[in-house]
Simulated assay, not measured.
Amino acid sequence: MPGVTDLALLGWTPDRVAELPGGTGPARVARVDRGLLTVLDGGGEQRVPATSAVQAGTGPAVGDWVALRDGRAVAVLPRRTAFTRVLAGRTSGEQVVAANLDLVLVVEALAGEARLRRVERYLTVAWGSGARPLVVLTKADLCDDVAAGVAEVAESAPGVEVLAVSSVTGEGLDAVRARVGAGWTAALVGPSGAGKSSLVNALAGRAVAATREIRAADGRGRHTTTARELHLLPGGGLLVDTPGMRELGLVDDAGLEAAYADVEELAAGCRFRDCAHRTEPGCAVAAAIDDGRLDPARYTAWRKLQAEAYRQELRADARARAADHARVRALHRAQRARPARTR
């Protein structure tokens, strides 16, 4: 990655100076490799070890700002935004995919059938991150009716701009570049084969991510990114490429209201405040489904994500209680192990 002498181009703002511990300087995390961080600062790119304090919790993550002292990362600065998911499996553990984002680019391919429910799930997490979401529909050159494909996805993405692009023909790329301005950070998120690596290379103007040939049968490929990495774009913007995610579990319900703003607005119009949207009289949601204003599949997806977020909240609470009990037990064991005082 080319060297950057102006920290503002890396997203640094003067108000962060107060967050730095004494005797340290700031650097942006571009890649994380088992305790070694590739970071960018005013001197360019370097690899530094992270202290145990930095590695604790969910950090560090690509996009984090860290404090450097004597060639080591000694602290992670507070995150302004974070795209976070629940780790795969039956767990309440969380993984920060990318931090300090201005934009989350939700990538889906126009080739093949639209995966509307998947787009809605990604948008829910994107809204919950604190960053602004944007849907990017790739492989426009393989789609017979781009306008119809964009319109279909836009119906499931209220309040979100939807752009169609082709990394082959260049269609739509300038529109994406215009939204990732100098000093802005965007993350590409989406499933394997959606064309994220090809999009990164097209936006960067050089090969920074490996790609594989698409399958002739369905126009889809396999995503070859194996680690999250921050790339500097020619216009000064920053782009985080991420591996395809088999699972994207909700950490909480923070993004549900925005992702399903249309359903939430309908629910607010129900006669009863505690309406379950089943057989209650005066249910505005049921009425919208009956007259075709609301896709029943979208309503079902909303309910499913609500239930998922609630289950995750319960698991997180149980995990916190278990950790607290373990701390108390360890304290008691330590007290019992102390030698008795002599009088």
Rank of each mutant, 00 (worst) to 15 (best):
R90N: 15
G255F: 00
P281Q: 11
G25Y: 07
A334Q: 15
R206S: 12
L233Q: 05
T81G: 08
A187Y: 06
E280R: 13
L314Y: 07
R271H: 14
R293G: 15
D262G: 14
R34S: 11
A318W: 14
R215Q: 05
R273Y: 10
A276K: 15
A340Y: 07
T24W: 10
Y260H: 10
G255L: 03
A99L: 01
F83H: 03
V135K: 07
A330F: 06
Y299S: 08
P14M: 12
A154D: 07
A151V: 02
V96Q: 00
E265H: 14
L68M: 02
W302F: 10
T124G: 00
R80T: 15
V162S: 13
R31W: 07
L110T: 02
V162R: 06
G219C: 10
R327N: 01
T91E: 01
A301K: 13
A182V: 03
D70C: 01
R90S: 13
G236Y: 10
R319G: 14
L105S: 05
P60V: 10
V160K: 08
S192K: 06
R115P: 00
A337W: 06
S167K: 01
Q335W: 05
A307C: 03
L173E: 08
A322H: 12
T5N: 14
E19H: 06
L248T: 15
T224R: 10
A75N: 02
W184G: 11
D291G: 12
L142C: 03
P49V: 00
L7K: 13
G255T: 05
V251A: 03
L103V: 09
R179F: 12
V39R: 04
D64H: 04
R319Y: 09
L9N: 08
R72N: 04
L294D: 14
S198Q: 01
A323P: 02
E247M: 06
R132F: 06
H325N: 04
S166P: 07
R293I: 10
W12F: 08
G112A: 08
L331A: 13
V208I: 03
V104I: 14
E45G: 09
L36S: 12
A204E: 07
D218R: 11
T91L: 07
G3H: 15
E229S: 01
R206D: 14
N100T: 00
H332D: 12
H231F: 15
Y260D: 02
A75K: 04
G59L: 07
G22C: 04
R115A: 13
G22R: 11
A309F: 12
R311I: 09
R79N: 08
V136F: 11
T51E: 13
A111D: 12
